[in-house]
Amino acid sequence: MTMFTVAALALLVSLGLVLVRVLKGPSIFDRVIAGNSVGTLSVLLLAVIGYVFGRPEFIDLAITYALLNVIGTIAVLKFFRYGDLGVGEDEAGS
């Protein structure tokens, strides 16, 4: 087992744990936090996968992901702040 395999396995495990938080919620903010972590972990997984498969060029894509992750999160939060979105009471509070 190479070190990249170990890192990839650890990342898959944490991705699974974080996904549990995305699915469970309970509030929308918990989902956003965990969704942001899913993005960060995908960036890492992508970088490591490149080494596992012996093709480190995949890292360009990890850069794209890192940029898109923050755009997605900020977009969600901007609409929370400035939109008059009637968020259901059960999902707005924690």
Partner: peptide, 9 residues
């Protein structure tokens, strides 16, 4: 790498 994986978990 092992440490990074550990901290992610």
């Amino acid at each position: 790498l092992a440490g990074g994986g550990f901290f992610c978990v």
